[in-house]
Design a binder for these strands. Structure first.
Lengths: 339, 339
DNA sequence: CTGAAAGCGCTTACAG
DNA sequence: CTGAAAGCGCTTACAG
């Protein structure tokens, strides 16, 4: 039988069964022209009889490309990553590539291990949401021809393609929105400052305050881990003390969740604008006002650029910046008196 | 230089540079014993000079395994899939495997294309959230030694490993909960009936009603697509008409979203229990009562079983069933009078 | 139209 | 301890 457990028929087996040469089998399997109908039929019969399926790994080794792309995320379980992944996957599929995925867990060493493991498999390219602060480890791989596009955050210490959201502009718009609704004392709760997006959004916050001529009390700024307990502590700090804020810009979706869970304990309730949209944001009471990114558009832009590189585009590294969009839903339209 | 664009040094190059045999390079690269320190140093120097990185694709072709697993999801952008993926990824990492991922989009042909593409790459195993209704196409692959574990839904027409949630029990519990709170006319809004989980949850609904001696009006049951418009129409149908329901069990997270968006238009507002938990469920007003699955536990169970198979476990196909858990938060505790 | 030989980059099996 | 030869399953380049 052709079904010996753990072993598979090869083209050689098919050739022997059909009584033809190896190259003829290859021609039939790959649909190349120049095989007589009779020969082709004999090969097809042998393929069916043996249950042959071409080994694409062997094929691609010989061809010198792998028709695969490595996608390195912070955490595939995060909705942001999920939407981005799906978009990358669609583009990869259109180009006949499969996708390796992995989560760095915001750990630089882990990112490097995964990225180099993908490179060792000789992926054609990488799409990377970087966690680390030094990407020089990729230089030999890039020099050897592996394309890489960074997404959501730029690469550090190397010059590379990137698809980013306008984080500064988005944060500015969120803060300006709160100022327009009468707020003067506004907090920014961000992720750790070494995270590029967190630093950029803080910058947008400062710019918007400065533009409106408003002073910033450094006690209104908390750059901290995003676990619920840490966020709750930050919320308590900025809404307590001598100059309590009347409004909060939260720096990403996880921080927004922490703030939302802490809000019921507060009176008065500060106005809130969250960076990143959330699935149920419109169903909360009040609805959650957000500065929304478009993770799918980010993924598409990054993947499109990657495949353009793989097709031979060798222009200097490009930086694609997508806009963030303010979506008012209620929580960001309350005035400083709490209504 | 070693950085000619698009070409990489091989072990042969390293051997030539170091002035040693190919096998000695292989020994050093793989940390095998029996190389003199002097030889090892010369090889290391050549590796560093050339920027050599072993080609794992070539290595694995020779070794007869690929140290990779294919994960086939319905949609990686769905939070359920994301959590499941992360769990599978962690288990794969512990076993030194990389992960190919792909989304079938609930399309049987697409599922088959992706699964067979993974098999053509000779993945060691597959974890599959099946979309199709006939998995016999995988029989030759299974016979050839590719392991497969189905997750969330069982395989159809073949006998295979599976890790499932107790959908019947979960739905029964959700309906029994509503009955305990005084409801007699209860709707079930499910996904298309050919989807295994949808059919199972409907069965649980019927069992719970029968157990309580309550008649079921077939007009209370809607098995339909999960887009918002379709769900809104179903909601209107079961809450209107001659015998309007006072409570709803929604069959999955997407349907729950549709119901939640339609509820504000209804008076009185029916009680609601949703199958699948949602990120912000506790922050809604009222809180959303759910029958929660544990997608990470499903992924872990499936991946653990897969790697046990890859380690040689050839016991008959196993079916792992994980419990669903009722989490009361308010929406499912309102009585039939709407309070 | 057909196929034998060489090679993709490694590891295995085997001599020295 | 060291390495030349054969082979993993294909494709490429080249004769017939």
């Amino acid at each position: 039988m052709s079904t010996r457990y753990g072993s598979r028929p090869t083209m050689k087996d098919v050739a022997a069964t059909a009584g033809v040469g190896l190259k003829t089998v290859s021609r039939v399997v790959n649909g190349e022209a120049g095989v007589t109908p009779d020969m082709a039929a004999r090969v097809q019969a042998a393929i069916a009889e043996l249950g042959f399926r071409r080994n694409d790994s062997a094929r691609l080794l010989r061809k010198g490309r792998t028709a695969s792309v490595g996608l390195l995320l912070e955490d595939i379980a995060d909705p942001f990553s999920g939407q981005l992944s799906r978009a990358v996957e669609e583009v990869a599929r259109m180009h006949g590539s499969l996708l390796f995925t992995g989560s760095s867990g915001e750990d630089a060493r882990h990112e490097q291990e995964l990225a180099l493991a993908f490179c060792a498999r000789r992926v054609d390219g990488l799409v990377v949401v970087p966690a680390g602060g030094d990407h020089r480890y990729l230089l030999p791989e890039l020099a050897a021809g592996i394309a890489a596009v960074f997404v959501d955050r730029p690469a550090q210490l190397i010059d590379a393609d990137a698809a980013l959201t306008d984080n500064v502009g988005g944060a500015r718009e969120g803060v300006a929105h709160l100022i327009r609704h009468g707020h003067r004392r506004i907090a920014f709760l961000g992720d750790l400052p070494q995270i590029h997006t967190a630093a950029e959004r803080l910058r947008g916050y400062r710019e918007a305050m400065a533009e409106a001529g408003l002073p910033v009390d450094e006690a209104w700024i908390a750059m901290a881990p995003t676990d619920p307990a840490s966020v709750a502590a930050s919320v308590d700090r900025v809404t307590g003390g001598a100059a309590p804020v009347t409004a909060v810009l939260s720096g990403n979706n996880r921080i927004t969740l922490g703030v939302l869970r802490r809000l019921p304990a507060l009176s008065p309730r500060p106005a809130l604008v969250g960076f990143d949209d959330l699935e149920l944001a419109d169903l909360l009471t009040p609805g959650l006002t957000v500065v929304a990114q478009d993770p799918a558009a980010l993924g598409r832009a990054a993947a499109d650029l990657l495949f353009r590189r793989l097709a031979g585009d060798d222009a200097p590294p490009r930086r694609i910046v997508l806009p963030a969009r303010l979506i008012p839903r209620g929580s960001g339209e309350a005035g400083p008196d709490g209504r």
